[in-house]
Design a protein around this nucleic acid. Structure first.
Lengths: 200, 200
DNA sequence: CTACGGGCATGACACATGTCATGGACGCGG
DNA sequence: CCGCGTCCATGACATGTGTCATGCCCGTAG
Protein backbone atom coordinates (compact mmCIF):
# COMPACT_ATOMS: atom_id res chain seq x y z
CA UNK A 1 0.00 0.00 0.00
CA UNK A 2 1.50 3.33 -1.05
CA UNK A 3 0.76 6.11 1.45
CA UNK A 4 0.28 9.44 -0.33
CA UNK A 5 0.04 13.06 0.83
CA UNK A 6 -1.79 15.45 -1.47
CA UNK A 7 -1.23 19.23 -1.43
CA UNK A 8 -2.91 21.74 -3.71
CA UNK A 9 -4.48 25.06 -2.86
CA UNK A 10 -7.25 24.56 -5.42
CA UNK A 11 -9.90 22.57 -3.61
CA UNK A 12 -11.58 21.20 -6.71
CA UNK A 13 -8.51 19.56 -8.20
CA UNK A 14 -7.31 18.37 -4.82
CA UNK A 15 -10.55 16.62 -4.01
CA UNK A 16 -10.91 15.29 -7.56
CA UNK A 17 -7.45 13.72 -7.50
CA UNK A 18 -8.07 12.36 -4.03
CA UNK A 19 -11.30 10.74 -5.14
CA UNK A 20 -9.64 9.18 -8.17
CA UNK A 21 -6.62 7.93 -6.27
CA UNK A 22 -8.83 6.35 -3.62
CA UNK A 23 -10.20 4.13 -6.38
CA UNK A 24 -6.75 2.62 -6.83
CA UNK A 25 -6.33 -0.52 -4.75
CA UNK A 26 -2.68 0.01 -3.87
CA UNK A 27 -2.84 3.73 -3.00
CA UNK A 28 -3.97 5.30 0.26
CA UNK A 29 -4.44 9.05 0.71
CA UNK A 30 -3.20 9.90 4.20
CA UNK A 31 -3.57 13.69 4.02
CA UNK A 32 -5.02 16.50 1.92
CA UNK A 33 -3.40 19.91 2.42
CA UNK A 34 -4.32 23.34 1.10
CA UNK A 35 -0.97 25.05 1.52
CA UNK A 36 2.73 24.39 1.83
CA UNK A 37 3.12 24.90 5.56
CA UNK A 38 0.30 22.49 6.24
CA UNK A 39 1.91 19.97 3.89
CA UNK A 40 5.23 20.13 5.72
CA UNK A 41 3.59 19.67 9.10
CA UNK A 42 1.44 16.77 7.93
CA UNK A 43 4.32 15.05 6.14
CA UNK A 44 6.55 15.22 9.20
CA UNK A 45 3.81 13.72 11.33
CA UNK A 46 2.49 11.08 8.95
CA UNK A 47 5.66 10.19 7.00
CA UNK A 48 3.92 9.31 3.73
CA UNK A 49 5.73 7.35 1.02
CA UNK A 50 4.99 9.94 -1.65
CA UNK A 51 4.02 13.64 -1.54
CA UNK A 52 2.15 15.05 -4.51
CA UNK A 53 2.76 18.80 -4.31
CA UNK A 54 1.33 21.63 -6.34
CA UNK A 55 4.01 24.16 -7.22
CA UNK A 56 1.90 27.28 -6.68
CA UNK A 57 0.73 27.35 -3.09
CA UNK A 58 0.42 29.96 -0.33
CA UNK A 59 2.99 30.08 2.48
CA UNK A 60 5.49 27.67 0.93
CA UNK A 61 5.52 26.59 -2.71
CA UNK A 62 6.09 23.02 -3.84
CA UNK A 63 9.81 23.52 -4.30
CA UNK A 64 10.27 24.91 -0.82
CA UNK A 65 8.23 22.08 0.69
CA UNK A 66 10.39 19.55 -1.16
CA UNK A 67 13.57 21.17 0.13
CA UNK A 68 12.41 21.02 3.72
CA UNK A 69 11.09 17.49 3.56
CA UNK A 70 14.30 16.21 2.01
CA UNK A 71 16.11 17.28 5.15
CA UNK A 72 13.72 15.77 7.66
CA UNK A 73 11.60 12.94 6.25
CA UNK A 74 12.28 9.93 4.06
CA UNK A 75 9.58 10.69 1.52
CA UNK A 76 9.65 11.16 -2.25
CA UNK A 77 8.14 14.33 -3.70
CA UNK A 78 6.35 14.78 -7.01
CA UNK A 79 5.79 18.37 -8.10
CA UNK A 80 2.76 19.21 -10.20
CA UNK A 81 2.29 22.55 -11.93
CA UNK A 82 0.27 24.57 -14.43
CA UNK A 83 3.26 26.50 -15.69
CA UNK A 84 5.63 23.86 -16.90
CA UNK A 85 8.77 25.56 -18.23
CA UNK A 86 12.35 24.39 -18.36
CA UNK A 87 13.35 26.88 -15.66
CA UNK A 88 10.67 25.59 -13.32
CA UNK A 89 11.67 22.01 -13.95
CA UNK A 90 15.27 22.89 -13.20
CA UNK A 91 14.31 24.48 -9.88
CA UNK A 92 12.17 21.49 -9.00
CA UNK A 93 14.94 19.00 -9.67
CA UNK A 94 17.47 21.10 -7.79
CA UNK A 95 15.23 20.93 -4.74
CA UNK A 96 15.39 17.13 -4.81
CA UNK A 97 12.02 16.31 -6.35
CA UNK A 98 11.66 12.76 -7.60
CA UNK A 99 8.98 13.56 -10.12
CA UNK A 100 7.67 16.43 -12.20
CA UNK A 101 4.29 16.41 -13.88
CA UNK A 102 2.61 19.32 -15.72
CA UNK A 103 -1.10 19.79 -15.12
CA UNK A 104 -1.61 19.67 -18.86
CA UNK A 105 -1.20 15.91 -18.59
CA UNK A 106 -4.20 13.74 -17.84
CA UNK A 107 -5.22 12.74 -14.32
CA UNK A 108 -4.85 9.10 -15.28
CA UNK A 109 -1.07 9.51 -15.36
CA UNK A 110 -0.91 10.56 -11.74
CA UNK A 111 -1.36 7.09 -10.29
CA UNK A 112 1.32 5.55 -12.49
CA UNK A 113 3.77 8.33 -11.66
CA UNK A 114 3.12 7.77 -7.97
CA UNK A 115 3.78 4.07 -8.35
CA UNK A 116 6.99 4.63 -10.25
CA UNK A 117 8.28 7.13 -7.74
CA UNK A 118 7.27 5.00 -4.76
CA UNK A 119 9.29 2.17 -6.29
CA UNK A 120 12.38 4.39 -6.14
CA UNK A 121 12.30 5.61 -9.74
CA UNK A 122 12.04 9.13 -11.06
CA UNK A 123 9.53 10.59 -13.44
CA UNK A 124 10.07 13.66 -15.57
CA UNK A 125 7.54 14.70 -18.16
CA UNK A 126 9.25 13.57 -21.39
CA UNK A 127 8.23 16.48 -23.55
CA UNK A 128 9.40 19.01 -21.02
CA UNK A 129 12.64 17.14 -20.41
CA UNK A 130 13.43 17.52 -24.10
CA UNK A 131 12.89 21.27 -23.88
CA UNK A 132 15.04 21.50 -20.80
CA UNK A 133 17.91 19.80 -22.56
CA UNK A 134 18.01 22.52 -25.17
CA UNK A 135 19.05 24.52 -22.15
CA UNK A 136 18.06 28.14 -22.22
CA UNK A 137 19.20 29.40 -18.88
CA UNK A 138 18.50 32.84 -17.55
CA UNK A 139 20.87 35.41 -19.06
CA UNK A 140 20.32 37.65 -16.03
CA UNK A 141 22.75 38.15 -13.19
CA UNK A 142 21.81 37.52 -9.58
CA UNK A 143 21.47 41.18 -8.82
CA UNK A 144 19.33 41.77 -11.87
CA UNK A 145 17.00 39.01 -10.70
CA UNK A 146 16.87 40.60 -7.26
CA UNK A 147 15.80 43.89 -8.76
CA UNK A 148 13.21 42.17 -10.93
CA UNK A 149 11.76 40.31 -7.97
CA UNK A 150 11.63 43.44 -5.85
CA UNK A 151 9.74 45.21 -8.63
CA UNK A 152 7.47 42.36 -9.49
CA UNK A 153 4.21 44.05 -8.45
CA UNK A 154 4.79 47.46 -9.93
CA UNK A 155 6.83 48.90 -7.09
CA UNK A 156 8.47 52.21 -7.85
CA UNK A 157 12.21 52.57 -8.37
CA UNK A 158 12.60 54.28 -5.04
CA UNK A 159 10.83 51.46 -3.21
CA UNK A 160 13.00 48.85 -4.89
CA UNK A 161 16.08 50.87 -4.01
CA UNK A 162 15.06 51.00 -0.39
CA UNK A 163 14.25 47.30 -0.27
CA UNK A 164 17.68 46.40 -1.62
CA UNK A 165 19.54 49.27 0.06
CA UNK A 166 20.70 50.73 -3.23
CA UNK A 167 20.81 54.12 -4.90
CA UNK A 168 17.84 54.66 -7.23
CA UNK A 169 20.25 55.11 -10.10
CA UNK A 170 21.67 51.65 -9.57
CA UNK A 171 18.25 50.11 -9.68
CA UNK A 172 17.53 51.93 -12.92
CA UNK A 173 20.76 50.62 -14.34
CA UNK A 174 19.96 47.02 -13.49
CA UNK A 175 16.48 47.40 -14.88
CA UNK A 176 17.92 48.84 -18.03
CA UNK A 177 20.30 45.90 -18.40
CA UNK A 178 17.40 43.48 -17.96
CA UNK A 179 15.31 45.26 -20.57
CA UNK A 180 18.20 45.10 -22.99
CA UNK A 181 18.89 41.41 -22.42
CA UNK A 182 15.25 40.43 -22.74
CA UNK A 183 14.57 42.84 -25.62
CA UNK A 184 11.53 44.37 -24.02
CA UNK A 185 10.62 47.96 -23.34
CA UNK A 186 9.16 48.05 -19.85
CA UNK A 187 9.66 46.49 -16.45
CA UNK A 188 6.30 44.87 -16.46
CA UNK A 189 6.99 43.00 -19.68
CA UNK A 190 10.32 41.89 -18.27
CA UNK A 191 8.58 40.58 -15.15
CA UNK A 192 5.98 38.74 -17.21
CA UNK A 193 8.67 37.13 -19.35
CA UNK A 194 10.79 36.12 -16.39
CA UNK A 195 7.79 34.64 -14.58
CA UNK A 196 6.81 32.84 -17.77
CA UNK A 197 10.22 31.20 -18.02
CA UNK A 198 10.48 30.35 -14.35
CA UNK A 199 13.45 32.64 -13.65
CA UNK A 200 11.96 34.34 -10.63
CA UNK B 1 -29.54 10.95 -18.57
CA UNK B 2 -27.92 14.38 -18.41
CA UNK B 3 -25.62 15.06 -21.35
CA UNK B 4 -22.66 17.23 -20.31
CA UNK B 5 -19.92 19.08 -22.19
CA UNK B 6 -16.72 19.74 -20.28
CA UNK B 7 -14.30 22.53 -21.20
CA UNK B 8 -11.09 23.40 -19.35
CA UNK B 9 -7.67 24.14 -20.74
CA UNK B 10 -5.96 22.33 -17.89
CA UNK B 11 -5.81 18.71 -18.92
CA UNK B 12 -5.45 17.28 -15.46
CA UNK B 13 -8.55 18.81 -13.95
CA UNK B 14 -10.56 18.22 -17.11
CA UNK B 15 -9.80 14.53 -17.20
CA UNK B 16 -10.20 14.19 -13.43
CA UNK B 17 -13.67 15.75 -13.50
CA UNK B 18 -14.61 13.67 -16.51
CA UNK B 19 -13.57 10.48 -14.75
CA UNK B 20 -15.53 11.39 -11.63
CA UNK B 21 -18.64 12.43 -13.52
CA UNK B 22 -18.60 9.22 -15.53
CA UNK B 23 -19.07 7.39 -12.24
CA UNK B 24 -22.45 9.09 -11.82
CA UNK B 25 -25.24 6.95 -13.21
CA UNK B 26 -27.36 9.81 -14.53
CA UNK B 27 -24.58 11.85 -16.17
CA UNK B 28 -22.98 11.32 -19.55
CA UNK B 29 -19.92 13.25 -20.75
CA UNK B 30 -20.45 13.94 -24.43
CA UNK B 31 -17.40 16.12 -25.06
CA UNK B 32 -14.16 17.29 -23.49
CA UNK B 33 -12.72 20.52 -24.88
CA UNK B 34 -9.45 22.29 -24.24
CA UNK B 35 -10.43 25.79 -25.35
CA UNK B 36 -13.40 28.05 -25.87
CA UNK B 37 -13.63 27.86 -29.63
CA UNK B 38 -13.64 24.09 -29.52
CA UNK B 39 -16.34 24.20 -26.84
CA UNK B 40 -18.61 26.37 -28.98
CA UNK B 41 -18.19 24.12 -31.99
CA UNK B 42 -18.80 20.95 -30.02
CA UNK B 43 -21.81 22.39 -28.19
CA UNK B 44 -23.45 23.48 -31.41
CA UNK B 45 -22.95 20.04 -32.89
CA UNK B 46 -23.81 17.89 -29.88
CA UNK B 47 -26.38 20.08 -28.12
CA UNK B 48 -25.56 18.94 -24.57
CA UNK B 49 -27.96 19.63 -21.69
CA UNK B 50 -25.28 21.32 -19.59
CA UNK B 51 -21.91 22.92 -20.40
CA UNK B 52 -19.34 23.06 -17.62
CA UNK B 53 -16.99 25.84 -18.70
CA UNK B 54 -13.74 27.02 -17.19
CA UNK B 55 -13.55 30.80 -17.14
CA UNK B 56 -9.90 31.12 -18.13
CA UNK B 57 -9.44 29.52 -21.53
CA UNK B 58 -7.54 30.35 -24.72
CA UNK B 59 -9.45 31.72 -27.74
CA UNK B 60 -12.74 32.38 -25.95
CA UNK B 61 -13.20 32.50 -22.20
CA UNK B 62 -16.11 30.89 -20.40
CA UNK B 63 -18.18 34.07 -20.42
CA UNK B 64 -17.77 34.54 -24.15
CA UNK B 65 -18.67 30.92 -24.80
CA UNK B 66 -21.79 31.31 -22.68
CA UNK B 67 -22.83 34.41 -24.59
CA UNK B 68 -22.50 32.67 -27.94
CA UNK B 69 -24.24 29.51 -26.88
CA UNK B 70 -27.17 31.39 -25.42
CA UNK B 71 -27.86 32.76 -28.90
CA UNK B 72 -27.66 29.48 -30.76
CA UNK B 73 -28.23 26.42 -28.57
CA UNK B 74 -30.69 25.48 -25.86
CA UNK B 75 -28.10 24.51 -23.29
CA UNK B 76 -27.42 25.66 -19.73
CA UNK B 77 -23.94 26.87 -18.86
CA UNK B 78 -22.08 26.54 -15.57
CA UNK B 79 -18.94 28.64 -15.22
CA UNK B 80 -16.10 27.39 -13.07
CA UNK B 81 -13.15 29.52 -12.07
CA UNK B 82 -10.07 29.84 -9.87
CA UNK B 83 -10.51 33.55 -9.35
CA UNK B 84 -13.92 33.89 -7.86
CA UNK B 85 -14.64 37.58 -7.23
CA UNK B 86 -17.89 39.49 -7.20
CA UNK B 87 -16.96 41.23 -10.47
CA UNK B 88 -16.36 37.94 -12.20
CA UNK B 89 -19.63 36.55 -10.91
CA UNK B 90 -21.43 39.61 -12.20
CA UNK B 91 -19.92 39.20 -15.67
CA UNK B 92 -20.82 35.53 -15.66
CA UNK B 93 -24.44 36.16 -14.74
CA UNK B 94 -24.74 38.96 -17.28
CA UNK B 95 -23.67 36.54 -19.99
CA UNK B 96 -26.56 34.25 -19.12
CA UNK B 97 -24.79 31.57 -17.11
CA UNK B 98 -27.06 29.32 -15.07
CA UNK B 99 -24.42 28.39 -12.53
CA UNK B 100 -21.23 29.68 -11.00
CA UNK B 101 -18.83 27.53 -9.03
CA UNK B 102 -15.40 28.53 -7.70
CA UNK B 103 -12.63 25.96 -8.02
CA UNK B 104 -12.03 26.30 -4.33
CA UNK B 105 -15.12 24.16 -3.79
CA UNK B 106 -14.79 20.41 -3.78
CA UNK B 107 -15.20 18.26 -6.85
CA UNK B 108 -18.06 16.43 -5.19
CA UNK B 109 -20.27 19.49 -5.57
CA UNK B 110 -19.94 19.50 -9.33
CA UNK B 111 -22.35 16.66 -9.96
CA UNK B 112 -25.05 18.14 -7.76
CA UNK B 113 -24.70 21.54 -9.41
CA UNK B 114 -25.04 19.90 -12.81
CA UNK B 115 -28.21 18.13 -11.70
CA UNK B 116 -29.73 21.26 -10.29
CA UNK B 117 -28.95 23.27 -13.40
CA UNK B 118 -30.15 20.52 -15.73
CA UNK B 119 -33.46 20.56 -13.84
CA UNK B 120 -33.88 24.20 -14.75
CA UNK B 121 -32.54 25.73 -11.54
CA UNK B 122 -29.66 28.05 -11.00
CA UNK B 123 -26.70 27.62 -8.73
CA UNK B 124 -24.56 30.42 -7.38
CA UNK B 125 -21.86 29.77 -4.82
CA UNK B 126 -23.53 31.03 -1.62
CA UNK B 127 -20.48 32.60 -0.02
CA UNK B 128 -19.62 34.51 -3.16
CA UNK B 129 -23.22 35.58 -3.69
CA UNK B 130 -23.12 37.22 -0.28
CA UNK B 131 -20.02 39.17 -1.26
CA UNK B 132 -21.59 40.21 -4.52
CA UNK B 133 -24.59 41.63 -2.73
CA UNK B 134 -22.40 44.02 -0.82
CA UNK B 135 -22.00 45.41 -4.30
CA UNK B 136 -18.58 46.76 -4.98
CA UNK B 137 -18.79 47.67 -8.63
CA UNK B 138 -15.94 49.02 -10.64
CA UNK B 139 -15.61 52.76 -10.12
CA UNK B 140 -13.92 53.05 -13.50
CA UNK B 141 -15.53 54.39 -16.64
CA UNK B 142 -15.66 52.38 -19.87
CA UNK B 143 -12.86 54.32 -21.43
CA UNK B 144 -10.67 53.94 -18.39
CA UNK B 145 -11.18 50.19 -18.53
CA UNK B 146 -10.25 50.24 -22.22
CA UNK B 147 -7.01 51.98 -21.43
CA UNK B 148 -6.27 49.58 -18.61
CA UNK B 149 -6.92 46.58 -20.83
CA UNK B 150 -4.74 47.97 -23.60
CA UNK B 151 -1.91 48.47 -21.16
CA UNK B 152 -2.36 45.22 -19.36
CA UNK B 153 0.98 43.71 -20.34
CA UNK B 154 3.21 46.71 -19.79
CA UNK B 155 2.58 48.39 -23.14
CA UNK B 156 3.92 51.92 -23.40
CA UNK B 157 1.65 54.95 -23.43
CA UNK B 158 2.35 55.50 -27.11
CA UNK B 159 1.35 51.95 -28.00
CA UNK B 160 -1.86 52.21 -26.01
CA UNK B 161 -2.60 55.52 -27.71
CA UNK B 162 -2.11 53.95 -31.13
CA UNK B 163 -4.25 50.95 -30.23
CA UNK B 164 -7.13 53.16 -29.16
CA UNK B 165 -6.50 55.94 -31.71
CA UNK B 166 -5.91 58.56 -29.03
CA UNK B 167 -3.36 61.22 -28.25
CA UNK B 168 -0.74 60.04 -25.75
CA UNK B 169 -1.78 62.80 -23.38
CA UNK B 170 -5.31 61.44 -23.26
CA UNK B 171 -4.11 58.02 -22.34
CA UNK B 172 -2.02 59.51 -19.57
CA UNK B 173 -5.03 61.34 -18.30
CA UNK B 174 -7.17 58.22 -18.16
CA UNK B 175 -4.39 56.31 -16.47
CA UNK B 176 -4.04 59.08 -13.95
CA UNK B 177 -7.76 58.95 -13.19
CA UNK B 178 -7.54 55.21 -12.67
CA UNK B 179 -4.57 55.51 -10.33
CA UNK B 180 -6.44 58.08 -8.32
CA UNK B 181 -9.64 56.05 -8.08
CA UNK B 182 -7.81 52.90 -7.08
CA UNK B 183 -5.35 54.69 -4.81
CA UNK B 184 -2.30 53.07 -6.31
CA UNK B 185 0.88 54.57 -7.71
CA UNK B 186 1.62 52.69 -10.91
CA UNK B 187 -0.18 51.21 -13.86
CA UNK B 188 0.97 47.74 -13.09
CA UNK B 189 -0.54 47.83 -9.63
CA UNK B 190 -3.77 49.15 -11.11
CA UNK B 191 -3.82 46.27 -13.60
CA UNK B 192 -3.18 43.72 -10.86
CA UNK B 193 -5.97 45.16 -8.74
CA UNK B 194 -8.43 45.28 -11.60
CA UNK B 195 -7.64 41.71 -12.63
CA UNK B 196 -7.98 40.65 -9.01
CA UNK B 197 -11.46 42.10 -8.81
CA UNK B 198 -12.58 40.83 -12.18
CA UNK B 199 -13.03 44.27 -13.75
CA UNK B 200 -11.05 43.55 -16.87
C1' DC C 1 -33.57 77.32 -23.42
C1' DT C 2 -30.04 77.27 -20.24
C1' DA C 3 -27.31 75.75 -16.67
C1' DC C 4 -25.17 71.92 -14.76
C1' DG C 5 -22.57 67.66 -14.31
C1' DG C 6 -20.11 63.64 -16.15
C1' DG C 7 -17.31 61.51 -19.42
C1' DC C 8 -13.83 62.22 -22.95
C1' DA C 9 -9.89 64.51 -25.05
C1' DT C 10 -5.88 67.56 -24.97
C1' DG C 11 -1.51 70.21 -23.82
C1' DA C 12 1.89 72.17 -20.35
C1' DC C 13 4.49 71.14 -16.36
C1' DA C 14 7.06 68.38 -12.60
C1' DC C 15 8.91 64.19 -11.66
C1' DA C 16 10.09 59.38 -12.34
C1' DT C 17 12.21 56.18 -15.55
C1' DG C 18 15.45 54.35 -19.03
C1' DT C 19 20.07 55.15 -21.37
C1' DC C 20 24.72 55.97 -21.29
C1' DA C 21 29.52 56.52 -19.82
C1' DT C 22 32.30 55.83 -15.96
C1' DG C 23 34.78 53.71 -11.96
C1' DG C 24 35.75 50.14 -8.36
C1' DA C 25 35.93 45.10 -6.83
C1' DC C 26 36.83 40.50 -7.89
C1' DG C 27 38.41 36.32 -10.37
C1' DC C 28 41.10 34.24 -14.17
C1' DG C 29 44.86 33.29 -17.36
C1' DG C 30 49.01 34.87 -19.48
C1' DC D 1 52.21 41.20 -11.75
C1' DC D 2 49.13 42.81 -15.29
C1' DG D 3 45.61 42.82 -18.48
C1' DC D 4 41.00 41.24 -19.34
C1' DG D 5 36.29 40.42 -18.52
C1' DT D 6 32.25 40.44 -15.52
C1' DC D 7 29.39 42.20 -12.11
C1' DC D 8 27.99 45.89 -9.20
C1' DA D 9 27.29 50.71 -8.19
C1' DT D 10 26.77 55.58 -9.42
C1' DG D 11 25.51 60.23 -11.56
C1' DA D 12 24.21 63.12 -15.79
C1' DC D 13 21.13 63.38 -19.47
C1' DA D 14 17.02 62.40 -22.58
C1' DT D 15 12.63 60.44 -22.67
C1' DG D 16 8.48 58.80 -20.86
C1' DT D 17 4.92 59.15 -17.21
C1' DG D 18 1.61 61.19 -13.84
C1' DT D 19 -0.72 65.62 -12.43
C1' DC D 20 -3.28 69.48 -13.41
C1' DA D 21 -6.21 72.99 -15.62
C1' DT D 22 -8.91 73.46 -19.54
C1' DG D 23 -12.38 72.82 -23.29
C1' DC D 24 -15.83 69.97 -25.94
C1' DC D 25 -19.88 67.05 -26.25
C1' DC D 26 -24.02 65.29 -24.56
C1' DG D 27 -27.86 64.04 -21.53
C1' DT D 28 -30.69 65.94 -17.90
C1' DA D 29 -32.93 69.04 -14.43
C1' DG D 30 -34.58 73.40 -13.63
Amino acid sequence: MIRVLLADDEGMIRSALAALLRLEADIEIVAECADGAEAVAAAERLRPDVCLLDLEMPQLDGVQVTERLNRTVATRCVIVTRHARPGVLRRALASGAAGFLPKSRGADEVASVIRRVAAGGRYIDPELAADALSDERSPLTDRELDVLRAGRHGETTRQIARTLSLAPGTVRNHVSAVLGKLSVGTRQQAVLLAEERGWI
